[in-house]
Design a binder for these strands. Structure first.
Lengths: 208, 208
DNA sequence: GTAATGTCATAGCAATCGGTCAAACTATTT
DNA sequence: AAATAGTTTGACCGATTGCTATGACATTAC
């Protein structure tokens, strides 16, 4: 009982990870169940024994990612200091993007396709954004940061962090860096942090 | 002669526009020649009469976009004032992203797929980036802007502008805006300009 | 032990994929 | 008008798509 269930759960997880890898590259339409099965080390028929359909697997992966993100991002307000909260937020998001680029790529792919899927998943993300907007607005009213557009401020952070999930492929071209060389995460995090802290008037540097 | 050639050219253009639309949604693997043909208002066989292969059409579209971007972005240094150059650059890029989101989406899709295609096209973009990096470095050395990472500064601008090509789909969810309502381009451009000018120490606002 | 249950691979389904073909059609040249 | 070149069409190719039917195999329940 317990043994079999555990085996089954491990298989589901292996399938989900394989699906994330493949869907991130080709999107829903561009990924075959054959490829997913092969990436998971099983046969196509075996895959279809565990999933209801390709579409259902895609939905499950999407839901899994969104719920995971809700845990990682923003809430659990570790501190009351805007500088600390923003710095920590950018660090967490960028680290996640750099360490799990497939997840961010899959998400970008889904959005690029015109968001035909993603049913209730969006509501969760929207709740997080609204919550954060309220916090930012409070900071502004208290005069603790410069006045920013709370929504666009978040979206711009999102844009930068999300972007670096694809940085590895793009940077190798734009910088001419060699293949195997890992990314300089510190350099990226520092520049991004500086960027958004400056916007809030929280920079240490003076104007030239 | 002239008449027939013109007709042929118009057809090629119609096909290319249809291809941009479709490839932007599904990527290379996720788009069928059937869909492209239908979007262009012709039959599949007719489409294959005008193109060598789906892959060749994809390449042509990619090359067309890259060369178009080189014209639009950065060079033709309209001014010597960093504030003016950066402001104008962000405005141009954002307007393009908002008015032609399919193009930016297609590009994102290509990058997300791991950049298997795009042969020499990258070299052109890299040349533009290198050129701009030199300009930014000169500004820093002359003390006209705060010290930034020239490459990452550009990539971050790229990230924000590129991101808003997908904003329409995403924003409708994050803001709960109604379907038909157009985007507030001014609001987006202002916040983005403020963001990157602040980073350069070119903001008018004081720290709180 | 046997029976029931859960997991697997082979083979195959209709549908669609990218692409081709020859014949019908239209336009241009002579 | 005849001949030539360019364009469009529907039928069709083998390969692959998502998915399933069936039977062998392994595991558990009794």
């Amino acid at each position: 009982m317990t043994r079999a269930q555990k085996k089954r759960q491990e298989m589901r997880e292996a399938i989900r990870n394989a699906a994330i890898r493949e869907f991130a590259q080709g999107g829903l339409a561009g990924t075959s169940t054959q490829m997913i099965a092969q990436s998971a080390g099983i046969t196509k028929a075996q895959l279809h024994y565990y999933i209801a359909s390709k579409e259902a697997l895609y939905q499950e992966v999407l839901g899994h990612i969104v719920s995971e993100w809700r845990e990682i991002f923003f809430l659990g307000p570790s501190s009351d200091d805007p500088r600390e909260v923003i710095t920590s937020y950018i660090r967490r998001k960028l680290k996640h993007a750099l360490e799990h680029p497939e997840i961010s790529r899959l998400f970008a792919n889904e959005i690029a396709s015109g968001v035909p899927h993603m049913p209730a998943h969006w509501d969760q993300l929207r709740a997080s954004v609204d919550e954060a907007s309220a916090v930012i607005r409070a900071w502004i009213d208290e005069g603790r940061i410069a006045p920013v557009d709370p929504l666009l401020f978040q979206i711009n952070i999102w844009a930068v962090t999300q972007h670096y999930a694809e940085y590895e492929a793009q940077a190798r071209v734009l910088t001419g860096a060699p293949e195997g060389q890992p990314l300089d995460a510190t350099r990226i995090i520092n520049e991004a942090t500086q960027l958004f802290l400056s916007r809030c008037g929280l920079t240490e540097q003076g104007t030239p």
